[in-house]
Design a protein around this nucleic acid. Structure first.
Length: 874
RNA sequence: GGAAGCUUAGCUCAGUUGGGAGAGCGUCUGCCUUACAAGCAGAGGGUCAGGGGUUCGAAUCCCUUUGCUCCCACCA
């Protein structure tokens, strides 16, 4: 094969992805092999790929590809999430742009638009994942709102209802006035906001006195139904037991109540009570039997209950009321104030606490086995620090508001009867049957299904079960084979939304964990540490990066910068590094590939030596990679391979066995070299699938599998020989020292030099041919005495000399030797200090003491040698 | 207000049961050497945030201070 001198990912990646698909290499069916399964965290169906997806899916692909190469039946199930609020908001916006207002459409008409949108945009994100090389089983692609998943969700709802876990009731919920729906507590994000604290005057009835109340939300005076003070507050002791005050502007008379809930320190110590629009006021209202006046429409404008400011938006109303209060002399003062305001996770608007009728799921029982599973490491969290977060939430879990006032989603299967009451059933027919048990005259047209849909997470929490249709068919062969899945890779931001709930669902419907391990990724930030966002414009388009650096380059960037649970500081330079690594692999292959083989020539000594060493290197590194991967230290595992290929294989081994220019190579060496190359590619393949396949295909012989995807992962058959590795490192040191001398003395690599040494047990004689070649030595000779006319160095205890032609710089040599001597004497002193410490020698482990003694011996030998060299020089 | 995590080279981070401070990138020097300048060879760079303790011995364990991150709570 003729190879270009630079690696280009351009045509290669698409070619091999197509090849993998044509050969169905990612498809999995249950069989006798051990399964390995990952379910993808389903991205929003209308979403676009961002850097977080790149990170997350690179890691999943590494795990899946590796499992596949280990001979497991690897199955990575892809899919998308219907993301009810986000998608509905997008569809509403799109319709609005076309001049269609959602409110003019029927549910059916709207859903038709929504499905059209989904068909058009849905799945783009999955197409994008293919560019990354994701080895998903695309035949299994699921959607949280497709028919099997929807049926599962409905079945689960009915099941929970029958178990008495689902109830309906009026509660204070988080209302999103933009999406016009209730949200769960988890969907509210609190942020510090600059606001104002308004001091309002409430006139005491039958008196000219005022009580001043501090509030951040003056517009809610419309809903005030009491004023509350602390019973211990001296400032208000004089008030009559049944005192009443007049709500400013509104003119309504409300009672003054007394409760210790009120903080004496805050504001004026007087609190206005608006039970319909504040969680704490709501509790006061319950306690004192106050009326709750809901003053807002669903979109956050003022309704007509009070007859003032009707139709005005809540924030506009705040400004108007501020002016009106001031004009009426009812505003004492206004102060700047910073407080926490809740915002909708999806639409970004400020949440309005609102009383409304919603469906709730009681969580306490569900949480119990799920908490236990994580705390007892039946499900392992990587890193473990998230166990604490998890436990805290689980132990304080609140009921889950599962109804959403949207259309895009699974409609709640509750059917209301004409004369009140309702039934819950999987189908309308079943609902009718149940209804008729209550009232035999009811017909289908009498039943009215609940208008609300379910929270998206109410379908996602079933994902590891539902992708195998295990809700509807709990005993089907697929769910029995693949469940529980092995690894889940996701961000800690959805630990409550998703992970915790999947664990609960797993135990509830399969009495078994949904996955064995959860690997938490961090957030991808830019190199300044800022979160990537559209507003900041600091989020690169991953597809652009892939086009520029290749998918493999992109993957390397992700792998180099990530460790479990830590944020990723993304820097485009890392992609460049990844691309360079691809090029390095490519060129290493180009070198090996261009050698002409001559079967007649014998294997040179240097090649024998290099192979003897590199066999051990491979064993050692394979073991380390394996060890790192077992602990999910994916970044370290990759770095290990990166250095193995670049430094040890390319920098040392290939240079050692490389034949002289235009000379052929012997058959034994080329065979072994290609064997290493094959192993290295197989080790690298899970991390860099494309470049490894491209080269491996050229290397592949007939009996090999058709793709590296299904080739086997190299294993270390035995432990590496430490002795060989440490002896070789002496040779490496000698070569480096020679290179150093060349550099210092300005001797070109081309110019051969001599090396003399005083033989002792630390002279690596078995690598002499390698030293000779790598050092470009014309002779290597043992001598009896140190030489003056030479650059000298010491490795371990062996003295070496590179004879210099002409005079050497005595002063410079002496200076260097003296500096070395000083350092060594200091080092020896510190070693001796330890060894002369009675308590160290008696309490430290034998190994450590022996090590110190070896250091002592080495240092002493070196010092003696240095002294001799100095003497010889003088 | 409460919890957790972090603080190691200029930058990003490893450092596994306590026993010689590491990597990648960047920097500096020299090389367009016939696989690769997307490269090669070499070098410099750290009081392991500060303080205290345990120990023969601490980046590592304990206490404490500082700074950062994040989660939970939501007093108007």
């Amino acid at each position: 094969m003729q190879l270009a001198d630079k690696y280009s990912s351009e045509n290669i990646e698409q070619k091999w992805y197509d090849f993998w698909m044509e050969n169905n290499l990612f498809h999995s069916e249950p069989d006798a092999r051990e399964p390995y399964c990952i379910v993808i965290p389903p991205p929003n169906v209308t979403g676009m790929l961002h850097m977080g997806h790149m990170l997350n899916n690179t890691l999943q692909d590494v795990l899946v590809r590796r499992a596949r190469m280990q001979g497991k039946n690897a199955c990575w199930v892809p899919g998308t999430d219907h993301a009810s609020i986000a998608t509905e908001a997008k569809v509403v916006a799109k319709l609005k742009a076309e001049g269609i207002d959602k409110s003019t459409l029927t549910r059916e008409e709207f859903l038709k638009h929504a499905w059209e949108w989904k068909e058009k945009h849905g799945g783009i994100i999955l197409q994008q994942l293919r560019k990354l090389g994701a080895s998903c089983d695309w035949d299994r692609t699921c959607f949280t709102m497709d028919e099997p998943r929807t049926a599962g969700v409905i079945k689960v709802f009915v099941d929970l209802f029958r178990k008495g876990r689902i109830y309906r009731g009026v509660r204070m919920v988080n209302w999103d006035p933009s999406a016009k729906t209730a949200l769960s507590d988890e969907e509210v994000i609190y942020k510090e906001s600059q606001g104002k604290l308004y001091y309002l005057r409430y006139k005491i009835e039958g008196s000219d006195e005022y009580i001043v109340v501090a509030t951040t939300r003056p517009e809610t005076i419309l809903g005030d139904t009491a004023l509350c003070v602390n019973p211990n507050d001296e400032r208000y002791k004089h008030l009559a037991e049944d005192a009443r005050v007049i709500v400013p502007l509104v003119g309504r008379s409300i009672p003054v109540i007394r409760d210790e809930y009120v903080d004496l320190e805050f504001g004026t110590g007087a609190l206005k009570v608006t039970p319909a629009h504040d969680v704490n006021d709501y509790m006061l209202g319950e306690k004192f039997g106050l009326e709750a006046i809901d003053i807002f429409n669903d979109d956050g404008t003022i309704n007509d209950k009070v007859g003032m400011y009707v139709g005005v938006d809540r924030f506009e109303c705040r400004k108007v009321i501020e002016g009106d209060l001031t004009a009426a002399g009812l505003m004492e003062k206004v102060e700047p104030y910073t407080n926490n305001v809740g915002y909708s996770e999806r639409t970004g608007v400020a949440i309005e606490p609102k009383l409304s009728m919603q469906w709730f799921l009681s969580m306490e029982e569900l949480a119990k086995p799920a908490t236990k599973a994580v705390m007892e490491d039946i499900i392992k969290f990587v890193p473990t620090k998230y166990k604490n977060t998890y436990r805290h939430w689980m132990e304080n879990i609140k009921d889950w508001c599962i109804s959403r006032q949207l259309w895009w989603g699974q409609r709640i299967p509750a059917y209301y009867l004409p004369k009140g009451g309702y039934v819950v059933a999987e189908t309308a027919e079943e609902a009718l049957r149940l209804a008729q048990e209550k009232d035999s005259t009811i017909t289908m047209s009498d039943l009215r299904q609940d208008e609300d849909v379910l929270d998206t997470w109410f379908s996602s929490w079933l994902w590891p079960i539902s992708v195998f249709d295990g809700i509807r068919y709990p005993n089907n062969p697929e769910i029995e084979y693949y469940y529980p899945t092995n690894d889940l890779v996701t961000g800690p931001d959805i630990i409550f939304f998703w992970i915790a709930r999947m664990i609960m669902a797993g135990y509830e419907w399969r009495n078994e964990k949904p996955f064995a391990n959860v690997y938490f990724t961090g957030i991808v930030r830019d190199k300044l540490g800022r979160k990537m966002s559209k507003q900041l414009g600091n989020s690169p388009d991953p597809l652009d990066l892939i086009a520029k650096y290749g998918a493999d380059g992109m993957r390397v960037a992700m792998l180099m910068s990530t460790s479990a649970g830590n944020d990723v500081m993304f820097d485009e330079a890392l992609c460049e590094q990844g691309r360079n690594f691809c090029n390095k692999i490519w060129n290493a292959y180009r070198l090996v590939n261009m050698w002409e083989v001559d079967n007649a020539i014998a294997q040179p000594d240097y090649a024998k030596e290099a192979i003897k060493w590199f066999d051990e290197v491979m064993l050692e590194r394979i073991e380390r990679v394996h060890h790192n991967m077992a602990q999910y230290r994916i970044s370290e595992a990759f770095t290990e391979l990166y250095r193995l290929f670049w430094d040890d294989f390319s920098g040392w081994y290939l240079e050692m066995v490389k034949p002289a220019y235009q000379c052929p190579i012997d058959s034994a060496t080329i065979a072994r070299t290609k064997h290493y190359f094959d192993e290295l590619l197989r080790l690298l393949h899970p991390f860099m699938p494309f470049v490894t396949e491209e080269i491996w295909q050229d290397l592949r012989s007939e009996n090999d599998p058709i793709s590296i995807c299904i080739a086997s992962e190299p294993k270390a058959e035995r432990k590496a020989d430490e002795g060989i590795l440490s002896r070789f490192s002496l040779a490496e040191e000698v070569i480096t020292a020679i290179r150093n001398i060349r550099k210092q003395k300005n001797i070109a690599q081309k110019e051969a030099v001599s090396l003399h040494y005083i033989a002792d047990e630390n002279y690596p004689a078995e690598y002499e041919a390698v030293i000779r070649k790598m050092g470009n030595l014309k002779e290597v000779e043992a001598v009896a005495e140190k030489e003056a006319a030479a650059s000298a160095f010491i490795v371990k205890t062996t003295q070496y000399f590179v004879p210099m032609e002409g005079a050497i710089d005595k002063e410079a040599e002496l200076k260097k030797l003296t500096a070395d001597l000083e350092y060594l004497e200091g080092f020896l002193a510190s070693v001796m200090k330890k060894l002369s410490n009675e308590r160290f020698v008696s309490s430290a482990p034998e190994k450590v003491v022996a090590n110190e003694r070896a250091k002592q011996a080495d240092a002493e030998a070196k010092i003696a040698a240095l002294k001799e060299q100095i003497k010889a020089l003088k």
